[in-house]
Design a protein around this nucleic acid. Sequence first.
DNA 1: GGGAAGTAAC
Length: 633
Amino acid sequence: MLKLRKQNFPIAGHEKLRLYLAYTVAALADTKTPQFQEHNFVPTNNHIQELQESQILPFRDPKVCVSSLLGSRSVFQIRQIHSQLVVNGMLQNLIVANKLLYVYAHHKAMDDAYAMFHRMRGRNAVTWSVMVGGFAKVGDYATSFGIFRELIRCGVTPDNYTLPFVIRACRDMTDLVTGKLIHAVVLKHGLHSDHFVCAALVDMYAKCKLIEDARQLFDNMSSRDLVSWTVMIGAYAECRNAYESLVLFDRMTEEGVVADKVAVVSVVYACAKLGAMHKARLVHDYICRNKFSLDVILGTAMIDMYAKCGSICSARDIFDRMKEKNVISWSAMIGAYGYHGHGSEALEIFRVMLRSGILPNSITFISLLYACSHAGLIEEGLRFFSLMWDEYSIRPDVKHYTCMVDLLGRAGRLDEALRLVESMKIVKDEGLWGALLGACRIHGNVDLAEMAANSLLQLQPQNPGHYVLLSNIFAKAGRWKDVARIRDLMSQRKLKKIPGWTWCEVDNKIFQFSAGDRSHPRSEEIYGMLESLYKKLELAGYVPDTNFVLHEADEEVKVGMLYAHSEKLAIAFGLLATSNETPIRITKNLRVCGDCHTFSKFVSALTERVIIVRDANRFHHFKKGACSCGDYW
DNA sequence: GGGAAGTAAC
């Protein structure tokens, strides 16, 4: 390698030499150096040191200054250059001064940047945007907003660089009030057509859960770039409308926008949310075709996708093929085994993880305890619960306690579960009470259920799901007056039962069903299939379980209500539209209804089909009249 | 001379 010496330097002239050296510094920092490449020179860290020692950089040429700043490796180095720039009066040059601010911000040295910013007499749009963006990036939103306000006070017009930073700060704080104010500023300055500004606004509204507002802005964008698509796709997946995410992904592809890795991760995430197996395979193909490497982020997202689409084998295959795995990847795999009810595999992979030298974190233990509770591994669960603090100094939080309540409650050890809840010294949340209430439902403990439900309704009076669960428990015990009381409470509080949806994927198309739905083009056939199924099932001994109907009504009416639940419609459609060998895969947005669970068991026996149901909680594999959940869910 | 979106449990 060429050693950097004046005598063998390829360009003549002293000034050029300085420039060349500056470019060398910049190249070491991987910045763009076309001139540098011309000379086919590969610099090393020694060169930069030599450069500093030789004090050859006089910092009088703005270009040299800028390149040197870009080449800085540490805040210390920037400060050294800073002092030279002051001595040489180079900070009078706004380009140089702004670059100095920028590199300070880039190294997160915002104190240095701020001190300098206050001494600067001349400021321009770049100065302001570097400061606003710099503070936003390090999470100091208060200062970022403060500088933005100062900008407005100084009569400066905010531009398409500054505004996205401020909008993103609103997003990170989910500060919708300020966000809307900034939106007004955007409109005032006519910047709503800038795609950076617009993408930031879409993201802000989406993260603040105003998905409709986000969508409206997105639809009105004159040109939608990849980032806006990615934001919108991710937003729909996040707000439980993964179906729309995948519709958008198809539209994006049709419009000729090519996904990058970030976009693909969002799509993978949406597939996971929806549990859409065919779509998952197609996305996997897309990933292979476009040669995305299976890095730790994409790989982990794919493990979760395949697991949540019902294929634990494919999830394991991805896991095994990943070259680099971190604690997140291992936790995802443990979690995957967990919600498929494969407890011993989850425990085994945890042991392998420990042997590989990866330390578990808090979430690893949640996955592990969850796996234990869903596989009935009670003693193991109890052991891990004490191990996490004793051995790994991870303090159990409310989620770990929730798993333990679930574990004990599911096993019928409700007293122990209650004692654990009472002994907790941390704040109890709705998930914890929900787990206790769920256990009461399985074991028909109405008194404890009432107590759990009271705490639950105090914490979350607006969640209709809790009322429905309690009402189901009362109904099962035949306490119809209490059922009516709950129903009245719900209507007083203007709460409606969350509509149940079931998705079934056939021929790469996702079909969505709601109860009593007749919108499907093959609706006639579906209802015909349902009717013939009912006739056969009745002979096989199936009795509709009307305990799962919330309202007090005549038995006949109740049976009618159960008749066309979305799960049943989806299963009937699956039977019609798929071949005998393929499993019927359906996904439900809520917990599967008890009657539909029984119905699925009977159908799996009668038709000799495998039915894989993913509900809000876990997977149910129905085969030959039995379910993998062992009827506890 | 200054910009973006993504991974695990419930």
